[in-house]
Amino acid sequence: MPNNSIKLLAPDVHRGLAELVSKRLGTHLTSSKLERDPTGEVTFSIGESVRGQDIFIITQIGAGDVNDRVLELLIMINASKTASAKRITAVIPNFPYARQDRKDKSRAPITAKLMADMLTTAGCDHVITMELHASQIQGFFDVPLDNLYAEPSVVRYIRENVNFNDAIIISPDAGGAKRAATLADRLDLNFALIHKERARANEVSRMVLVGDVRDKVCIIVDDMADTCGTLAKAADVLLENKARSVIAIVTHGILSGNAIKNINNSKLDRVVCTNTVPFESKMKLCPKLDVIDISGVLAESIRRLHNGESISYLFKHYPL
């Protein structure tokens, strides 16, 4: 066996993305076994030697049992570390606790920083994420973190699946304006913004549209869709302003709580998410959902990382 080859590990649930990546890399997932004992504690064992190998642990963290997935990931990293792996890279497309990245109230925890510390403590040497909620989270880590962008995949999806000649890119809030603007530039489209006016905290906010959407196909772009309440409201506002139709493209479709109900009841034509989050089961409940496969980007970044090549090409281009 050649030394220092790529070994892909994945937990026993949500292996879909890991399998897609392994297929693209022309390799297979390393056999491993994750056992939960009746108390809920996790035991992990790797089925073959990983001494001196380059380990990539691919995990999809969605809504629900986030903490279980996190602990499993940490235990997998630690098991690889103690088995003398040469380098361990955690591939976490949807970084958990990314939204708790600041002390916004007194004595609030900065859980994203805690996650970073925990990953490094477990023995992680490198982290690959996708579309971090705040790119400053990279600074929380003592190890290199490669933050990939879904934008090339989104551009490709829009070119292939949306009649984009009379489309317009919409940012659902001021924070996402930059993301929407760069996407609009890439596609040479116009751009509009929905501004949430919040008179007072905990009050129903009023949404104001900035820009002209008359007779246009509106593409709402955001990095994360959780309960989808904002998306549904944004669609209402756009249609009130005489938009022809509205679709939403989000990177991380967490779709928790009433998300499916909200989407089904909303005026959105389609909600497109990447497969950073496992939501195959939800696609059956909601015909409006569509998926963008980002396994190509992950596979290519893993290959480039392993060979010591530059990754920045992937920020702008979709790999072949």
Partner: peptide, 13 residues
């Protein structure tokens, strides 16, 4: 097997 030894990990966390 190459079994995870979680003791040190939990301590370090």
């Amino acid at each position: 097997l190459w079994v995870a030894q979680s003791g040190t990990l939990i301590a370090n966390l």
